[in-house]
Structures are given as structure tokens and as C-alpha cells.
Design a protein around this nucleic acid. Structure first.
Length: 621
DNA sequence: CAGTAG
DNA sequence: GGGCCTTACTG
DNA sequence: GCCC
């Protein structure tokens, strides 16, 4: 048996290099990963006249060379425009003034609009200059239309940020395509494109920031039941439901009225809508419910794939293992697969896994499994060692390579760190699943001790328990206090209390600094024959409750998906916060962005990302 | 920094 | 050809 | 191994 949890351990980060900047725009200055946010000096610059050049992270002070920018001044404060013009010039870029009327300037390579401008509004502006959609489409396909944060981020990082990371341009082109399609066939309803979904989902986004109005209704969140949320029915809600239902690739199956004029939509409302979320929602598992509860009718297939996944994981091929994980999730979620057509269009299944599935369908087995997941001594030892908490592929391989084969010989022949010693001590207990009934007992024990210390504390058991699984690998208990401060002084006393009663038997990790405090350790119920169980206790400030709850409820795969989605929308999601205006270059973060206030319920986060709320049980991907 | 974890 | 989630601890 |  292996650890069920997905993690990304041992992946050596690839050195992040260049950009995928538009090849049409000649740009000799390469985008280079920026390791640190360079401070932007106000007194700085002036163009160095040939002699000494100040160093920059990119090694190129003129990273905007070849770029001709036109700032569309609508909504951008004049002072800001002037400042940007100056800075752009200092970095080798050209600037042309944007005149609302008159033809489009053909020398322009980049149009920059205010961050709050969405595709609709940008289109309106462009249409004033070029009323012909077809011609406009042609023109815009040769340039970039980007939010202001692209240029400010570029200037800040002294690197030309990858245009591909900003979606406005794609949305704009998509919008134009839609309009063209719509005007061509006036008589029928437009097809439901990915972008149509996007519009709907975005409109459905209340963009809450209505936190204070949220009473402690969320406190009804409780073990097992899950589901917070304001319960306020909005007129968009039904639309949103419509928009993000079912599988991906269901596009075209049904039509919607997405294309109707939204002139009745409040401008200010639109302005709050962040461009850039949902066109890709279908590609993320967090946008639709898992098949929780339903039986996996493709077990014969997932069994084989899981063997490969495990082997890849224990040999350190984590990304490959992860790819199998995604495919397994898709197959498990799908209706019974009996023929090739059944896997057509399923996400995460490419040529490699597809051929294996076909083989399983035809022969009932997969050669690769027999050949690669060999039951030899080495593999068995690696698998055995990977079962130790604190040991993963690297260490397991190292030990197995030096001819170690059993748990017993480990303490004498290798140096175990503290965590591994505890992991070894409870090796067999930790591999046992925990029945829900026992999770409840553990929860009660912790809850009782906590409430003795402080009234009004909220304790919620997350993890697979909250997702409704019949058994759990560990117990994750999240602790907070609605008054925003009474969570502060309970962490250490709570642990002391639980230790002194003999409930907590080991500490794997105690982190008492930072806004969130966490204990990862081991507990034991005072029952005959009780097993040692993995227990995590996390204390968080109320302001971070939503993000923490979301995170510790998982699943791991679901979390990754949601974070990817946020990332694509120029946001950043962590167990602390959902940030907007997060700027990244490749995988590197240039700016954290700003945490959004009010994300104290899970629903607020789903809403802000334009996703339909999913119950914990539906996040079991 | 690599390794492991949530 | 590169990203594939993100933050945090240990040694 | 998948996807862009």
C-alpha cells in the first residue's frame, strides 16, 4: 500500500527560463525569470547614454525595445498615463497617443487599457475606430490588447511580461468572433461556446466583497454536512448553474441566450467583473462535481492505471504519476467504458493512456503493468519504505539501492530523522483507514478540550471526512473564532491539554508562528485496541477561514485545479487568501497581488472565481 | 538547497 | 518544449 | 503522461 495523498514532493523545479512572447513582435530582449521583485525607484532612470548601464534582473534595460504602445486613456488617470509614457520610453518602448476617433494606428503593437476594462468595453472602444468587425478582427489579431497590469508588472519586474498570461486579448478576439457569428445567422440562437459560458459565469459572479453582511450563518458548517454559503438567491444564480454543469466538451449540446445584449447590466457591476476567468473553466475539475458516492463502473481500468501510478510515484516520476491521477479521476467519473468512442474527449487521456485503456478493453490487462510494476525485491522494498511517514521516493530509492529490504533493519543501518522515527514506530497503524465513527470521537476529544479553554471556538473536521468518505487517512481539524481574535491564545494550551491527557502521543510538526498555527502529530483514543492516528490541528484567524476550510477539505487534486484556475485568471489562491492582480512570469511570482477581503466562506471564493459552488462531497476528484 | 508534507 | 498548486518546515 |  502507498500513501494515498498526492503531493509534489521531490520535483526539482526546472529552471524557469524564457517567455512565450509573441513571435510576431520582434523582441531581442528575452524575458527572463525574475527571482525577486526589484524595487522600483522613482528617481531612477533616464536613458543611460551609452556608458554605464545599471544592471537589471533581465540584464536588459530596454526590454520594451520594438514595442509600440498605445494607452487607451479611458479610466486610466491622466497622471498615470503620463508616468507610464515616461517609463515606457525609458525602457526602449515607443508610445503613440490613442485618439478615440480616426483609424487605428498600424504601427502599434500593444494596446493597454485600464485593469477594470473588460472585453466588452474594450470592443466598444475599438469599434469606434473600426466599425467593421471583420476588419477589426484582422487588425487585432496582429497586436496585443492588454490590461494595465501587464505594463506596470513589466516595468516593475524590468522584464517584458508574457502577454499570454493575460486573457483580455483572447477574450476580445473571442467576443468579436461571437459577434460575427451572431450577425451572420440572425435567425438562430448562437451556440454555447466556451466564451459564452464565460460571460454567463462572470455575470453570475456576485463579486461579493459583502463579507460583513454575512452573519455567522456559516457557523452551521459542521462535520460531515459541510456547506456554508449565504443562501441568497441571485438572479444570476440559475444562469450560473446552467453555465457550469456537466462535463467539459458538452459545449454545443445546448444553446443559451448568452449573446443577448447586456445593456441592462449595471455598468458598475461590470466594472467590478474581473476579466479573465472562465473561458477555460471546463478544463478544470473544480468546475464540476465529482462522482462522489456513485460507484466506479470502470474499476477494471482504474485498477490497472493505479498500479502504474503507484510505480511511477515510488520511482519519483511525480508528474507522470500525477498525469495518471488525473486520468484515473476522469475514468472513475465517467459512465461505463466499453468501447473506444467512450473515451473520446475525456480530459487527461492522451495517446499513451488511451492505448492502455484500449488494451485493457480488448485483452483485460495491460502489458506495461506486468512488465513495469514488477513484484521484485527492489520494488517491494521501495513500496514498503514509501509507506513510512517522512519517507518518499528519494529516500526509499536510496535505501533500497543500498540493499535494505525490511523495516527492522532500518534503525540500525540508516540514519532516521525524528519524523521518520515516529513514522516507523506507527508504521502499521498509519496505514489503517480510520472509520468515520472514530473520527467523530477524535473530533469530540479535541473539541471538548478546546471549548474548555475558550468559548465560541469553531472546530470543523475537514479532509476526506468532510467530503463524506466512509473512512479517512487522517483527521484534520480546523479551529477558528468568529470574533477574529480569540483564536490567538489557544494553540499551545490546547496542545498541552491534549498531551497531558495522553491523547496526543507524538509531534511531527508544531508551527506556532505566522497567522496560521499548525500541529501535525499523532493521537490515541483511550479505547482498548485503539490505533495511533494521524491528527492535524490548524488554528486560523477568522479572516482566513474560508480559504483554510477550502484548502483543508481538499481533495488535493481539486485544490490544484482550483489554484490553477485562479492562476489563469491572474489571481492566486492559497490557504491564507485569494489574491487578485497576482502577476507571474511563468511559474515565478512577480507580485502577490492583494488579498481579497471577505473570503470568509467557501462560497465567496467559488463565486469570485465564477465557479458553481460545490459541496465538499463533490470535490472528491 | 532538497526532500517531504498538507 | 515547458508547466503541471502552493506554502511551510526540517536538516 | 497530458496539455498548451
Amino acid at each position: 500500500m502507498k500513501k494515498a495523498k498526492l503531493h509534489n514532493g521531490g520535483n526539482i523545479p526546472k529552471s524557469s527560463t524564457g517567455s512565450r512572447s509573441d513571435p510576431r513582435l520582434s523582441n531581442p530582449g528575452k524575458c527572463v525569470g525574475v527571482s525577486k521583485l526589484p524595487e522600483i525607484s522613482c528617481t531612477k532612470p533616464k536613458i543611460p547614454s551609452g556608458n554605464s548601464t545599471t544592471a537589471s534582473p533581465s540584464g536588459d534595460n530596454f526590454f520594451l525595445r520594438g514595442v509600440i504602445i498605445s494607452i487607451i486613456p479611458e479610466r486610466v488617470p491622466k497622471a498615470r498615463v503620463d508616468l507610464l509614457r515616461k517609463r515606457i520610453g525609458e525602457r526602449g518602448g515607443g508610445i503613440v497617443t490613442f485618439h478615440p476617433q480616426g483609424a487605428l494606428d498600424e504601427t502599434v503593437t500593444h494596446y493597454v487599457v485600464d485593469d477594470s476594462v473588460d472585453a466588452e468595453e474594450a470592443l466598444r472602444v475599438f469599434l469606434m475606430k473600426q466599425p467593421d468587425l471583420e476588419a477589426l478582427s484582422e487588425t487585432l489579431s496582429n497586436v496585443q490588447c492588454l490590461p494595465c497590469k501587464w505594463i506596470s508588472g513589466s516595468l516593475m519586474s524590468r522584464t517584458r511580461l508574457d502577454e499570454g498570461g493575460f486573457f483580455l486579448h483572447r477574450q476580445l478576439l473571442d467576443l468579436i468572433t461571437r459577434k460575427m457569428t451572431a450577425s451572420r445567422k440572425l435567425d438562430c440562437t448562437p451556440p454555447k461556446s466556451a466564451f459564452a459560458l464565460f460571460s454567463l459565469a462572470v455575470l453570475a459572479t456576485p463579486f461579493a466583497c459583502t463579507p460583513k453582511s454575512e452573519p455567522s450563518s456559516m457557523l452551521s458548517v459542521n462535520a460531515g454536512t459541510g456547506g456554508d454559503g449565504s443562501g441568497i438567491k441571485r438572479k444570476w444564480e440559475s444562469i450560473a448553474e446552467h453555465a457550469s454543469s456537466g462535463y467539459e466538451d458538452s459545449g454545443g449540446a445546448e444553446s443559451s441566450d448568452s449573446d443577448e445584449e447586456d445593456s441592462d447590466v449595471d455598468e458598475e457591476f461590470l466594472a467590478r467583473v474581473q476579466p479573465g476567468h472562465m473561458p477555460f473553466a471546463a478544463k478544470f475539475v473544480c468546475s464540476y462535481p465529482s462522482s462522489s458516492g456513485r460507484k466506479n463502473v470502470n474499476g477494471h481500468i482504474t485498477d490497472q492505471l493505479e498500479k502504474l501510478q503507484n510505480t511511477y510515484k515510488s520511482t519519483g516520476q511525480d508528474f507522470r504519476a500525477m498525469a495518471y491521477g488525473k486520468a484515473i479521476g476522469t475514468v472513475r467519473n465517467a459512465p461505463r467504458i466499453t468501447k473506444i468512442e467512450d473515451i473520446k474527449g475525456l480530459r487527461g487521456i492522451g495517446s499513451g493512456i488511451k492505448s492502455k485503456i484500449i488494451e485493457i478493453l480488448e485483452t483485460g490487462a495491460c502489458e506495461k503493468v506486468a512488465a513495469y510494476c514488477m513484484d521484485n525485491e527492489m520494488n517491494k522494498a521501495i513500496e514498503l519504505f514509501c509507506g513510512i511517514h517522512g519517507v518518499s521516493s528519494k529516500t526509499a530509492l536510496k535505501w533500497a539501492s543500498s540493499n535494505l529490504r525490511t523495516l527492522e533493519e532500518l534503525p540500525e543501518k540508516v540514519r532516521l530523522n525524528r519524523v521518520q522515527q515516529i513514522g516507523l514506530k506507527h508504521y502499521h497503524d498509519f496505514l489503517e483507514r480510520i472509520p468515520r465513527s472514530e473520527v467523530v470521537e477524535i473530533e469530540s476529544t479535541v473539541k471538548e478540550a478546546a471549548l474548555r479553554l475558550q468559548d465560541g471556538l469553531e472546530l470543523i473536521t475537514c479532509g476526506s471526512y468532510r467530503r463524506g468518505k466512509p473512512t479517512c487517512g487522517d483527521v484534520d481539524i480546523l479551529v477558528t473564532h468568529p470574533d477574529g481574535k480569540s483564536h490567538r491564545n489557544i494553540f499551545a494550551p490546547l496542545l498541552d491539554s491534549l498531551r497531558s491527557s495522553g491523547f496526543i502521543t507524538d509531534d511531527l510538526l508544531v508551527a506556532d508562528e505566522g497567522s496560521q498555527k499548525k500541529f501535525l502529530g499523532v493521537c490515541l483514543l483511550p479505547n482498548p485496541g485503539a490505533k495511533h492516528r494521524r491528527l492535524d490541528i490548524i488554528v486560523v484567524p477568522y479572516s482566513e477561514f474560508g480559504c483554510a476550510l477550502l484548502y483543508f477539505t481538499g481533495s488535493a487534486h481539486f485544490n490544484r485545479s482550483m489554484r490553477s484556475l485562479a492562476h489563469k485568471a491572474n489571481m492566486a489562491l492559497s490557504h491564507h487568501s485569494l489574491n487578485k492582480n497576482a502577476v507571474r512570469v511563468g511559474k515565478k511570482k512577480v507580485s502577490d497581488g492583494e488579498p481579497l477581503p471577505g473570503m470568509i466562506t467557501e462560497k465567496a471564493i467559488f463565486d469570485y472565481l465564477g465557479l458553481k459552488y460545490l459541496e465538499p462531497a463533490d470535490r472528491d476528484h
